[in-house]
Structure formats: C-alpha cells, structure tokens
Design a protein around this nucleic acid. Sequence first.
DNA 1: CGCATATATATGCGTCGTCCACTATTGGTC
DNA 2: GACCAATAGTGGACGACGCATATATATGCG
Lengths: 176, 176
Amino acid sequence: MSVELRHAILGLLAQRPMSGYDLGRVFQGSVAHFWHADLSQIYRTLRRLADDGAIDTQTIPQDGKPDRKVHSLTEAGTTALREWLASPLETEQVKDPFLARLFFVESLGRDAALRLLDERAAQTEAVLATLSAIDIPGDSLRSTLYAATRANGVHHARAELEWIQHVRQQLDDTKE
Amino acid sequence: MSVELRHAILGLLAQRPMSGYDLGRVFQGSVAHFWHADLSQIYRTLRRLADDGAIDTQTIPQDGKPDRKVHSLTEAGTTALREWLASPLETEQVKDPFLARLFFVESLGRDAALRLLDERAAQTEAVLATLSAIDIPGDSLRSTLYAATRANGVHHARAELEWIQHVRQQLDDTKE
DNA sequence: CGCATATATATGCGTCGTCCACTATTGGTC
DNA sequence: GACCAATAGTGGACGACGCATATATATGCG
C-alpha cells in the first residue's frame, strides 16, 4: 500500500545517484519484473522527496539537451529508507485479475475455462523464457539479491504451470 | 488494469442479484484471496454501472434498516461481462513490494536480508494455513473453478517457501 | 526534407482507491 | 443505561497513478 514508489526511488538512489530519466529507464528495465513507474509519477515523487528534504539535487548543464538533475540521498533520505526497510511486512492485499476472470468465466462454460487456461499457460511460458534468459553474474550481496528477485518469478511461473495442469485435470473430471 | 472492479461486480451479480452491502461482504470473504474492494468504491461503481444501464436496481423497503437496493444484470450488463471474459488477457504489470524490499535491503547487509526472508516465510505459512483450511465441496463447474482459485494460492505459497529456501542457500554462499 | 526516436523535465486531466465521517436503527454486552 | 457492532447506504477529502501533451534539441532513417 503505503507510498512504495517513494521507497523504491530512495532505494535506487542509495545504490547510485541518478536523474529522473535514469530512474525511468531502470523501472522499464532491470527492476521491471518487480516494479514499474510512469515518468510523470517519478518526477512528481522526486519533487515531493526534495520538498521533504530526503534528496539533494545537483543540476548539470548540458548543451542541446535540457539540464540533467542528478539526485542523491541526504542523511534524512537514508534514514527514511532504513526505517522502511526495518518496518514490519504488511500483508499484501491481493488483486488478481486473472483469477477473477477464471472464477467468472464459469458463466461461459467449461470450454471457455479451458481456453482461458491455455492462454494463461502461453503467457506464463513467455514470462518464464524472459526471466530465464538472463544469467546474473557476480557473487556480491547485491547481485545475489537481484538474482533472487528474478528467481522468484521463475519459481512462481513454474508453480503457475503446475497449477494449470492440476486445474485441467479437475475440469476433465467435471461433467457439463 | 482497466476497470476490473466493474467486471468483478458484474461477475458477482451474474451469479446472484445482490445489494452493495452484500457485495462488500463477498469481497471481504469468499473472494478475498483474489479480489477486495472498499464499500465506498463499490457503491460508486454500482452508481456508474446503473448510469451505463448495465444493472437494474430493485428497492426493497425494510423496517428499521435503510432500504435494500438489490442489483441485477440487464442484458447490456450481461453483454459487457461476456465481452470482458472473451477479451484477450493483458500482461499484468507487476508491483511486488516484498521483492522491492528484498532487493533494497542489500544496504542493511546479509543478516537483514535473512531476517526479511524469515518474516516472509512466517507470513507465507500463515497464508498457506488459511487457504488449506477450507475444503470446497461440490463438483459443479462453479465450485471447481472456485476451488481452483484457492488452489492457485496454495501452489504459489509453496513455491514461495521453496524459493525462500533457495535464496537462503544462495546467501549462505555469499560472503560479507 | 520530413518524421520518428532519444534525451530530459514538467503539467494537466481524469480515474481509481482508501480513509473518514455521517445517517438511522436493532440487538447485544458491560 | 451507555457503548459497540452489524445492517445499509452516502458523501467528501486526498493521494496515487496512468495517459496525453508541451518544450527543446540532436540524431538517424528512408
């Protein structure tokens, strides 16, 4: 729930100072499998972080392009990040559009449910391929944890495929 | 993304006509493992569905309590539901606060990461216990699909626990 | 030459969603 | 008797978010 983008930005800036545009590329790239954010939202959040004194901004003039504003954590920002990291885990409120659809597809009958599962299986295979493609080098703590976030997706994708097989069997036993 | 609460409400009303308050209890209860919604949001969405002519409202006077407004699908509502169910699956944009935390907890060191995993494991065990507790009776298509939505949570909870074990081992091999 | 794309930041609009408060009554607990 | 929860619905405030658009320039493609 509570203002996660703020924390994600603090976390990224703790790793290295960056501009809003840089953050946008990171959210589109390396961390896209666990977080994403719109550029306009990033800039708005950066402004609020600056207002709260959590980040320092250094303006680097460039010719041709607009000024680069490189943001880095202040002491207050570092403290805020640590507080978030140390706070107890909230139980996440689930919203799973696919499961909702599977549940409600009942009104279209068994075959529609099976087709939906096929579609989901294909989608999951694609995700699995994407996540497996990259092998993360290095044995630093950071790269180990980064690899872990990707491995999480792999484990869940496999679980999803196994579950789909399970449901297919259940549906085969269901008359109608 | 796109206006899922509308569709979830259409789906529930297709199963049986209900009041907004009833919907609230369903979102807090039987479907809470894949969707939830605030009462005020439910009432607002019902109003918009009524404006769009997707639902019919029958007011049933009660003594003592406010009138019950029982909503049911119109033909237009049924069509809208079917269209949603038949539309192609969108690839869901992931936002996983836990994975974000795990990635950024790097700045607190290896022990903090291990503690976070412990917390997650406990949380996941609790979810697993809740989901496993209920055995769904019946072999109708609806109850099979409902059981499937719960089984999904079980499969993923187990995958999460396996993944945690995997990450613990990786961290043991990581110096620092 | 025009058009698309990348770099870089920012504003505005509208929706969605959460929290809180309020109305009104019945029934149960301390 | 006072307080709280459940039933049933309504309304406001506010934040988070996504999409479109604006600005300004450089490079590359056909």
